[in-house]
Amino acid sequence: MAEGSADLMDADDYTNVINGIRYPPHVKKENLEALAEFDIRNDDIVLVTFPKAGSNWILEIVNKILVTSGKIDASSSDDMIAMGKLEFQYSHEPRPRHVMLQECASPRVILTHLSSDTAPPGISHPQNKAKIIVVMRNPKDTAVSYFHFEQKRRSMDGRKPLPSWDEYSQLFLAGKHTYGCFFDHVLGWWQKRDDPHFLFLKYEDMKKDLPSAVKTVAEFLQVKMDDASIRSIAHACTFSNMKGTLDNSRFYDRAVLARKGRVGDWKTMFTDEQSKFFDQKFKTKLEGTGLHFDFE
């Protein structure tokens, strides 16, 4: 660990540390504890990602599938994101999002970055007909995307910048940035892969063949779609088209989300030594689990 980097993060009062995990300020201990009683409905659709691993992409796809199929009224993904992450409570609102979600009409689309051992039992161990879509992205591109996103957010909020990329990459690797260890997060959810309530998608596979991913999601949601509709949704959800949607979002944190959306962009930031450290961590944490990623 680069000298001083841990201290810099520890001194950042813009985060909360709960049970050893660092969270954004919108995540409060009392709300995480209350989520143990969060009621999951039969027709809920839950989208699970580690931050910067494709949450807004899968949200856009699910939104367009539901609108096209008539399962929900015409709306934008902004309307869906208005509820925010399941675990959030914004400072300007008196009620947390998990309470507000209880008043939403079905089918609800619920977003979360929580790990499998922190998410509500109805999501991590579903007993009804709820559907959970988990999107995963390779850790190197995730770290680079997260770094740039955080720098933009901090600049907009008037906060001090993150440490250097070298220091940040070490914090990410050690699980000392928000939402904890990437590897523990993905592995916790990956252990649910044989449960029919879950669909697992890889960011890199979606980049390779988006129409196939759209079709897979529609089938998982038990929505019948013709090929023309699938192609139309895939076209609308390409990075270039989605970037316009996000750039014009009414929510400022969505407006800084889209950057490059590339697989392999990590090569523009990583040194050989940093890449080696990530490879070693990947091997230590995930070797033998059957979980693999494409890195270019």
Rank of each mutant, 00 (worst) to 15 (best):
L162Q: 05
P139D: 01
V99F: 08
R95T: 10
M156N: 08
P107I: 14
A82H: 13
L101A: 14
S76D: 10
L66E: 02
L101V: 03
P120A: 01
G158H: 01
Y168C: 03
E93L: 15
F88C: 13
A143L: 09
N128C: 07
L114T: 00
G70M: 05
L111A: 12
T118R: 12
I72W: 04
D79E: 12
L59S: 14
L111G: 11
C104Q: 15
A143E: 01
V144F: 07
P107M: 10
D79G: 12
A105Y: 09
A105P: 12
L86G: 05
K64W: 05
V134L: 13
N128Y: 05
R154W: 04
H148R: 13
R159I: 00
P161K: 06
P94M: 10
S124G: 11
N63S: 09
V135W: 05
E150I: 04
E60N: 11
V67N: 04
W165K: 00
A74D: 11
W165L: 02
P139Y: 05
L114D: 01
V109Q: 08
A143H: 03
D79H: 11
K129T: 11
V99K: 12
A130T: 13
E167K: 05
S155A: 15
L114I: 02
M83K: 12
V99Q: 13
C104M: 15
I133P: 07
K131A: 08
N63P: 00
N63C: 15
M100L: 15
K129Q: 13
P94D: 11
E103S: 14
E87K: 07
E87H: 10
A74C: 08
I58N: 01
S115P: 02
K152G: 07
L111P: 03
K64M: 11
Y90A: 10
D73T: 06
S115C: 09
I132P: 12
T118S: 13
P126S: 08
L162D: 02
R95C: 11
I61G: 06
S69W: 02
V134Q: 08
K140M: 13
I81M: 15
S77K: 12
R97T: 06
D73P: 00
R95M: 14
P120K: 02
S77T: 08
D78V: 00
K131M: 11
V67A: 03
S164M: 03
N128F: 09
Y90T: 01
V99N: 04
F88R: 00
L111R: 10
A82S: 14
S76L: 12
V109Y: 07
H98Q: 04
P126N: 08
N138S: 05
S116G: 01
D79L: 11
K71I: 10
I72Q: 01
S116Q: 09
P139I: 10
H125F: 13
S77N: 05
L114M: 04
M136Y: 05
D157Y: 08
V109I: 09
M80H: 11
Y168E: 00
A119H: 00
R97P: 00
L162M: 13
P96D: 02
